[in-house]
């Protein structure tokens, strides 16, 4: 994976495959502590202890195939940049994944195009809700698909015009947060 936004897109798929209809995505950029924290939490079916132990194994997969690289890849990237990956899961409740990176580590993957990944997730999972919280030191940006759903009523979120509207909103705020505009 070239950047974190692609990891996010990949890992969110695990959540939706596990039957989640809510996904929380939190990105915390803390330049004072020199930390980048990525947290993803879902209300999918969760995992039992045995499965939870196996998910970091590249030859473990929950589906009918031979390998499962999503989690091993981000774990490797986190550890490579002075951080770690931790997963907590409760059967029937959901799963929380936290990846911590040293912010200015040379091997820390860049954030990448986070707005584009969120747009892709909405395009492909328009019935599920995404809660996105992005903080950069003291600044916080919040985005919730539920707010749009309320305003739009019957109009689906994967309508092209709606997606464009949301995309503009996400892109503007993504740049605003880090003082680029």
């Amino acid at each position: 994976m070239k950047d974190l936004s692609l990891h996010i897109l990949d890992l969110a798929e695990n959540s939706f495959l596990a039957g989640a209809d809510k996904l929380i995505l939190r990105i915390k950029e803390d330049t004072v502590k020199n930390q980048l924290v990525l947290v993803m939490a879902d209300n999918g079916q969760g995992m039992g202890v045995t499965e939870l132990k196996s998910v970091s194994d590249p030859f473990y997969t929950g589906r009918n195939k031979k390998v499962g690289l999503g989690i091993p890849l981000i774990k490797y990237n986190a550890e490579l940049s002075g951080g770690f990956l931790e997963i907590f899961s409760w059967s029937g409740v959901g799963t929380v994944l936290a990846a911590v990176f040293e912010y200015d580590h040379i091997d820390r993957p860049p954030l990448g195009d986070i707005p584009e990944s969120i747009i892709s997730l909405i395009t492909l999972n328009s019935d599920q809700d995404i809660y996105f919280y992005h903080s950069y030191d003291d600044e916080v940006y919040k985005f919730k698909t539920t707010e749009y759903r309320e305003e739009l009523g019957e109009i689906p979120l994967d309508n092209n015009e709606v997606l464009q509207f949301i995309g503009d909103e996400l892109k503007t705020n993504f740049r605003k947060l880090r003082g680029e505009i």
Binding site: M1, G68, G70
Partner: peptide, 10 residues
């Protein structure tokens, strides 16, 4: 999938 995304599916 992971392979698709890594290869540019987005």
């Amino acid at each position: 999938g992971t392979c698709g995304i890594a290869a540019g599916a987005r």
